[in-house]
């Protein structure tokens, strides 16, 4: 039987990096092994939590977002700390070589009885803030504004900067921004384009909020059933597909920002000092929030040690 690979978003390699990754992985694996991979884009196999449930229960591959992964390993939230990475390279080595991510992978395998996080898949670069009438240069500019926030950690972030957070489902974001129900949101440039948000948002602030990524997860029973040879090919294929996706994401992010600038948005790039200020104000609120989750302190310490920023925790 072919193994099913489910993920979010359209089967369009230009717009959806996750689809590009899936397609590339399929091609490499099918060339080199007898394993057949069948792609299911557009959340056809279910929502985030549903796909994760199914991946843990029956043979399947799944690209999960934080919404799917974090219920199993809330520790993964640490990697979503705002203003954590200065560059894509820093984010990559954090996941590829850091001690913290190894601990998350181990915790995931242990709690699921053998299922594994196989890769961290890049989606569309850093998230940027967008806003309707007020340009955002520093955290002080957030004062009194209403933002779309999708989980308690985002609410904590906005509140730390003096703004408020309100949940708006993605299908209603455009009209909510247009009509002033909320005055801003954050997303990678890719989603700003997909949602035509440039039509209703004047400013985009590239504050490197969070690095957008998803996670390839494989069912444990299925992985165990593979021959050593196939397993090695699969792992190599994952790395190769991931490298290709990273190169592609890197190349397209700047194109997208240029496109947005040409299509009605004023792009703001904060200075190093301003970025440091975002970090100073935004991070503690998030770290506090992490404290309220069932996350062992050792994970937080390991993550900041990996970045060489342990002093930020004091």
């Amino acid at each position: 039987d072919p193994i099913k690979l489910g993920y979010n978003g359209a089967p369009d390699a230009k717009k959806n990096a996750v689809h590009y990754f899936a397609e590339t992985l399929e091609k490499i694996v099918e060339e080199k092994t007898d394993i057949e991979i069948e792609l299911f884009p557009n959340s056809q196999l279910g929502s985030e939590q549903e796909r994760m449930e199914n991946t843990l229960a029956s043979p399947m591959l799944n690209v999960a977002s934080f919404a799917g992964l974090s219920p199993v390993v809330p520790e993964s939230f640490v990697s979503n700390t705002p203003f954590m990475f200065g560059s894509p390279e820093e984010a990559r080595s954090f996941f590829d070589e850091g001690k913290y991510w190894g601990m998350v992978e181990a915790a995931f395998a242990e709690r699921t009885g053998g299922s594994e996080i196989l890769a961290v898949v890049e989606e569309g670069g850093f998230l940027a803030f967008t806003s309707t009438d007020k340009a955002i240069h520093t955290p002080a500019d957030f004062d009194g504004m209403k933002f779309r926030a999708m989980d308690p950690s985002q609410v904590a972030l906005y509140e730390a900067m003096g703004a408020s957070g309100t949940p708006i489902p993605w299908t209603e974001v455009y009209s909510a921004l247009q009509t002033g129900v909320v005055e801003g949101q954050m997303n990678p440039p890719l989603y700003i384009i997909l949602g035509s948000l440039n039509e209703v948002q004047k400013y985009m602030t590239r504050a490197n909020v969070q690095y957008s990524m998803q996670f390839l997860v494989g069912n444990g029973e299925w992985l165990a059933s593979l021959s050593d040879e196939d397993r090695a090919v699969l792992e190599a294929a994952v790395v190769e597909a991931n490298n290709k996706t990273r190169a592609k994401v890197q190349a397209t992010v700047e194109e997208r920002v240029t496109w947005l600038a040409e299509n009605g948005m004023e792009v703001i790039t904060p200075t190093a000092d301003q970025l440091a200020e975002f970090q100073k104000i935004g991070q503690p609120s998030f770290i506090n929030w992490l404290g309220t989750q069932s996350i062992d302190k050792s994970f937080i310490e390991a993550a900041f040690a990996d970045l060489g920023k342990s002093d930020l925790l004091k």
Partner: peptide
């Protein structure tokens, strides 16, 4: 709540 207090609770919907 959104109009008078600026935001509705995150668990609202």
């Amino acid at each position: 709540a959104r109009y008078f207090f600026g935001s509705s609770p995150i668990w609202f919907d």
